[in-house]
Structures are given as C-alpha cells and as structure tokens.
Simulated scan of single mutants.
Amino acid sequence: MTATRTLPATALLATGLAGAALAQSSHGDMGKMPMGGSAAMHDQMQKTMADMQPAPGDAPSTKDFKEADMAMMHTMSVPYTGDTDVDFRTHMIPHHKGAIDMAKVALKHAKDASTKQMAQKIIDDQEKEIADMQAWLKQHGK
C-alpha cells in the first residue's frame, strides 16, 4: 500500500484509538504524546499509526511486528461500560493477545535462545491470564 492509500485508514484508527495508544505508552513515541485529545496528540497518533504500516525494505520480522501492532490496536478499540472490573478485562484481553502475537513473531524470527525462552513464557502467561479474565467475565454474565 502507498502512504496516500493508508492515510485515511490511519486517520480513522488514530481518531478511535487514542486511549489504546496511551495504554501502550512504553511503545515507541507514544510515551511522549501530549494528554487531553489535542491536535498535537491526534497528529502524533497519525504518525504512530503510519509508522506501523509496512514499508519497503522492512525486515520480515519488522513486517510481522507491524502487523501484530496494527491488529492489537484495532482490537483494543472496545467500548467502555463504566464498570471498572469489566472494562479492565475487556481492554486487557486484546492487549494480552497482542503480546502473544508479538511473542510469536519473536519465536519465529529471533536467534537468541533467551529471547525465544522469554517469548514462550509470555505466551504461556498471557494465555492463562486471558483465560482467567474470560472466565471472570463469563461468571459475571459479561
């Protein structure tokens, strides 16, 4: 895709995902984003989302990481209910699924054994936490 073809989708995602991006504040430049829904925040979100688009010359692992990032950002766009217990779980589940997807990229592409070991631990831990959160939601009729 060209930048001009992806920009409208990027703008749409950026508008709807500011909260999700702030949850990822340790990821890239998002930790430097201004608070409060300002034009600068919107511009930074657009840049961040554009940076997640595949680019010519990206390493195969970078392409896979970018795909995982975009999928996570899309699935983290979950409506808030006003119930902290529910909102925490419904927003953490896609966040954890994103961590699993990124860990799978690491398993596929990493060369260092400790990276692969950490990735597998993340998958195991996050899958258990997702199952626990889903069970809680089901138990509470959500």
Rank of each mutant, 00 (worst) to 15 (best):
G28R: 11
G28K: 08
G28A: 09
G28F: 02
D29Y: 08
D29W: 04
D29Q: 12
D29H: 08
D29S: 10
D29T: 07
D29F: 01
D29C: 01
M30S: 14
M30F: 14
M30A: 13
M30L: 15
M30R: 14
M30C: 01
M30T: 15
G31M: 03
G31Q: 10
G31H: 09
K32S: 10
K32R: 14
K32P: 00
K32D: 11
M33E: 02
M33S: 14
M33N: 10
P34A: 14
P34Q: 09
P34V: 08
P34F: 06
M35P: 07
M35W: 12
G36C: 02
G36F: 01
G37P: 04
G37D: 06
G37W: 04
S38P: 06
S38I: 04
S38A: 03
A39D: 15
A39R: 07
A39T: 13
A39I: 12
A40M: 11
A40P: 05
A40F: 03
A40C: 07
A40Y: 03
A40I: 01
A40T: 11
M41I: 02
M41H: 13
M41R: 15
M41C: 07
M41N: 08
H42R: 15
H42T: 12
D43K: 04
D43T: 10
D43Y: 03
Q44N: 05
Q44P: 04
Q44W: 08
Q44D: 08
Q44G: 09
Q44L: 15
Q44S: 10
M45K: 08
M45A: 14
M45Q: 04
Q46F: 10
Q46V: 15
Q46H: 02
K47T: 13
K47H: 09
T48F: 15
T48Y: 13
T48M: 08
T48H: 06
T48D: 03
M49N: 11
M49S: 04
M49L: 15
M49Q: 00
M49P: 01
M49D: 09
M49A: 15
M49H: 09
A50H: 05
A50I: 04
A50T: 14
A50K: 03
D51I: 00
D51R: 05
D51Q: 13
D51G: 11
D51T: 01
D51Y: 02
D51M: 08
D51V: 00
M52Y: 09
M52C: 13
Q53N: 14
Q53S: 10
Q53G: 10
Q53V: 14
Q53M: 14
Q53P: 00
Q53Y: 05
Q53W: 09
Q53R: 11
Q53H: 10
P54Y: 04
P54M: 06
P54V: 05
P54G: 01
P54C: 00
A55Y: 07
A55C: 07
A55R: 11
A55F: 03
P56C: 00
P56I: 01
P56F: 00
G57R: 03
G57C: 03
G57H: 02
G57V: 05
G57M: 02
D58L: 02
D58S: 00
D58H: 02
D58T: 07
D58E: 04
